[in-house]
Amino acid sequence: MTSLPSKAEFAAIQKGYSPNASRSLSLNADAYIDPRWFNVDLKEIFAKTWQWVCHVEKVREPGSYIAVEIAGQPIAVVRDREGVLRAFYNVCKHRAHHLLSGSGTSTRIMCPYHAWTYRMDGQLVRAPHTETLEDFNTKDICLDQVKVEEFCGFIYVNLDPQATSLSEQSGDLETEIRHWAPDIDKLTFGHRLTYDIKSNWKNVVDNFLECYHCPTAHKDFCTLVDMDTYKVTTHGIYSSHMADAGNSSSSAYDVSNATVKTHAVWWLWPNTCLMRYPGRSSIIVLNVIPAGPDRTLETYDFYLETPEPNEMELQTIKYLDEVLQAEDISIVESVQRGMNTPAFTQGRIVNDPDGSGQSEHAVHHFHGLVLEAYARGA
């Protein structure tokens, strides 16, 4: 089992970072390559933050459920018979077998190992052949609950029993998202893209949070949006990335019939990105999932006006999959390799005080949140 960093290392990891982005270095390379820091990420960040699960449509009806893994833990989210949203560790209280798989609807939760059966509120109601047990009562046994919240049309869970609500933590984020995407609750799942990336999750987030690299690495993207209007604003535990759609023809995909003319993106600490690209009304959810010190899984879920993407959305999906993602994956995998050499420890944050897209102040904001979590872990 990998140990955690020492107190001295917790102190040293802060070196070079300044609260002033114009004076700051980036996060130390050790945080991206050392398995001990990856363990801190799981314990102090992912196990204590709000993690995206799905769109509310998955668990809208009483009896609906979805089983997922959050920070390495099996979790089930259900809507009970009274319509209350609940989340539990997806683990039977008898012999720790998993309970639910995938998603669907049910009137009960029955363990596939010994048929112990729970109500949708987690209360045990039946345990076969336990009549002769002493001091045993099904009413005393209930699944371990996890914090769950419906926020902006999506479901999030938090494994930290002390966590305050996502709504409270995120300030004006919901107001901002609903201003640009007022129909977000009514959208429906249309498509999923998945990726397995040879890079630490923080490199993936770093790359997402700045468009300083866009003119060099994403020339098609720079025709999709008007880079002169690109602004990035940081707040508490999120950042907003806004730009107008490009005025000329786009080489990324055809936006001539677009009803949404704004490129609006929100990053929510630590690993959820909500995107509204020019086109029809839609939301793309990027979920960045840490799978190892140098491995990240990504899902891109497209929520659309209709279950089937239209021609413009098919072009969008193709562009994101075959062009934009291919470019970004190549970048972050190269950065990960570079961080594993003796040639790199930290680099300067490039900061524009006016908050343009071609600035790394949102990366600096993210690094500050990482270091705050590390300080708490120390």
Score class of each variant (00 low, 15 high):
residue 361 H to Q: 11
residue 97 H to I: 00
residue 42 L to A: 00
residue 215 P to L: 08
residue 199 S to L: 05
residue 250 S to A: 10
residue 53 V to G: 02
residue 274 L to I: 05
residue 158 N to M: 01
residue 88 F to L: 10
residue 252 A to I: 04
residue 9 E to Y: 00
residue 362 A to Q: 01
residue 125 V to T: 05
residue 5 P to H: 07
residue 233 T to Q: 13
residue 208 F to M: 06
residue 236 G to M: 11
residue 220 D to M: 03
residue 61 E to G: 00
residue 376 R to W: 00
residue 369 L to C: 10
residue 53 V to C: 10
residue 80 D to G: 09
residue 337 R to D: 03
residue 132 T to C: 05
residue 179 H to K: 15
residue 366 F to K: 03
residue 375 A to R: 15
residue 293 P to V: 13
residue 87 A to L: 07
residue 323 V to L: 11
residue 64 S to R: 13
residue 273 C to D: 05
residue 319 Y to G: 02
residue 99 L to T: 09
residue 323 V to Y: 12
residue 43 K to S: 11
residue 239 S to Y: 08
residue 278 P to L: 04
residue 63 G to A: 07
residue 17 Y to W: 15
residue 317 I to V: 06
residue 336 Q to M: 13
residue 216 T to M: 07
residue 277 Y to G: 00
residue 199 S to I: 05
residue 5 P to N: 02
residue 324 L to Y: 14
residue 136 F to Q: 08
residue 359 S to A: 02
residue 212 Y to W: 03
residue 7 K to N: 15
residue 117 T to Q: 12
residue 127 A to K: 09
residue 368 G to W: 05
residue 191 H to R: 15
residue 164 T to R: 14
residue 256 S to K: 11
residue 149 E to R: 08
residue 120 M to G: 10
residue 192 R to N: 10
residue 19 P to S: 08
residue 351 N to R: 06
residue 15 K to N: 14
residue 118 Y to P: 11
residue 316 T to I: 08
residue 290 P to N: 04
residue 277 Y to T: 05
residue 159 L to G: 11
residue 209 L to R: 12
residue 260 V to H: 03
residue 254 D to W: 05
residue 283 I to D: 01
residue 149 E to L: 04
residue 33 I to F: 04
residue 335 V to E: 08
residue 237 I to M: 13
residue 239 S to E: 07
residue 363 V to D: 05
residue 216 T to G: 11
residue 117 T to M: 04
residue 327 E to S: 11
residue 275 M to R: 10
residue 343 A to S: 13
residue 313 E to V: 03
residue 232 V to I: 15
residue 258 A to K: 13
residue 115 A to M: 12
residue 212 Y to H: 06
residue 9 E to Q: 15
residue 64 S to A: 14
residue 45 I to H: 02
residue 321 D to W: 04
residue 253 Y to L: 01
residue 326 A to M: 08
residue 192 R to L: 09
residue 88 F to R: 02
residue 358 Q to L: 06
residue 44 E to I: 00
residue 326 A to S: 14
residue 168 E to H: 09
residue 131 E to C: 08
residue 297 L to A: 14
residue 138 T to Y: 01
residue 53 V to D: 09
residue 109 I to V: 14
residue 224 L to Y: 00
residue 219 K to W: 07
residue 79 R to H: 06
residue 233 T to K: 15
residue 340 N to K: 14
residue 359 S to Q: 03
residue 201 W to K: 01
residue 49 T to S: 15
residue 276 R to S: 13
residue 160 D to P: 00
residue 233 T to M: 07
residue 277 Y to W: 14
residue 324 L to D: 04
residue 126 R to Q: 12
residue 332 V to D: 03
residue 223 T to D: 00
residue 321 D to Y: 06
residue 39 N to L: 12
residue 234 T to M: 02
residue 62 P to N: 03
residue 305 E to P: 10
residue 173 L to R: 08
residue 99 L to V: 08
